[in-house]
């Protein structure tokens, strides 16, 4: 069995329905009592901080809420403040630009690298894989000053694209490690069939490999997206014009030196969270059920 360190394991019979693969699978739509209980507990745990965030954002007296489970009322005031005076609309756009550029380029670049390490045997291959892993180990806080100086040399300061390039460097190592599994899971026979049909390597890559690993790319992009979307310290130090700030920097404007404005902070946090959730929902199908299956269809 070609075990590979990634979400995708042994090739499974392609025609088989994924839904039939899991243990204890129930082909029912109703839940058993223990499932209901577990589900409630799971959702309670998973969603509580999000609930707290949203309900505080809607609480007219957010700053003095304390420990009460329900907000003291509901108001859109904090949201309109954050989007109006807070200028969060522009931050959201900036972050979206940075995140999308990061996701697109890192997917493309990482895929090429993943194909190299998954499909070719060459000298130094192991060392490179380990090195890619090591690249994730340096604490980012320690890199702030050196990377700032480097970015200045490369004229990448005060530019959203420059920031995206930095995030690219942060998300690449993870993306390569994730993607090599997806690539390895595509049976070599599929590639060989393409060659038999007269394709060159490039055509094979574009027409055969790429569609097959697409779901894997989507799954990997979630991580790149979150990295670029939530990062704070590099965005703060690299961007000099405050109209270029990203959402994570924008969030900090509601913390004064001696004050914290909880209503706007939670409203801004909600606005930061929503696009990520939307992104998840969009890629959900690939992320969960299609994630592995897609790689072997075809």
């Amino acid at each position: 069995m070609s075990t590979t360190p990634a979400p995708v394991i042994a090739p499974v019979a392609p025609e088989e329905s994924r839904d039939g693969a899991a243990p204890l699978r129930a082909d029912r739509t109703s839940l058993r009592p223990w499932q209901v209980a577990t589900l409630v507990a799971l959702l309670g745990f998973a969603l509580f901080p999000a609930y707290w965030m949203v309900s505080t954002a809607l609480d007219p007296r957010a700053s003095t809420r304390g420990g009460s489970l329900l907000p003291s009322g509901l108001t859109p005031r904090h949201f309109s403040f954050v989007l109006g005076d807070g200028g969060f609309g522009a931050f959201l756009l900036n972050s979206a630009l940075v995140a999308v550029v990061t996701v697109l380029i890192s997917s493309a670049v990482a895929l090429l690298a993943a194909v190299a390490v998954a499909r070719f045997r060459f000298p130094l291959r192991r060392q490179i894989l380990v090195m890619i892993l090591v690249a994730q180990m340096v604490p980012l806080e320690a890199l702030v000053i050196p990377l700032f100086l480097q970015a200045r040399t490369l004229h990448m300061l005060n530019s959203l694209l420059g920031l995206a390039v930095v995030y690219l460097a942060f998300s690449l190592p993870f993306a390569v490690w994730q993607l090599r599994g997806f690539v390895a899971a595509v049976p070599v026979e599929v590639e060989e069939a393409a060659y038999v049909d007269g394709c060159g390597w490039g055509q094979m890559f574009l027409r055969v490999l790429l569609p097959l690993v697409a779901p894997g790319l989507v799954a990997t992009s979630v991580f790149s997206f979150i990295t670029a979307w939530n990062e704070f310290i590099f965005a703060l130090t690299f961007l000099q014009d405050d109209d270029k700030y990203t959402v994570a920097v924008g969030l900090q404007k509601f913390f004064g030196e001696h004050t914290a404005d909880w209503g706007p902070i939670m409203a801004a946090s909600t606005l930061i969270t929503v696009p990520v959730v939307v992104f998840f929902l969009l890629v959900q199908r690939n992320l969960v059920s299609g994630l592995a299956a897609g790689a072997v269809k075809g």
Binding site: T29, L31, L39, L42, A46, P49, A50, M53, L251, V288
Partner: peptide, 19 residues
């Protein structure tokens, strides 16, 4: 249900670490 539950689980990841 799996779709619903895994979406909810992902929300825990989506909330910024600071918040």
């Amino acid at each position: 249900w799996r779709y619903l539950a895994s979406s909810a689980v992902m929300v825990a990841w989506a909330v910024p670490a600071i918040t």
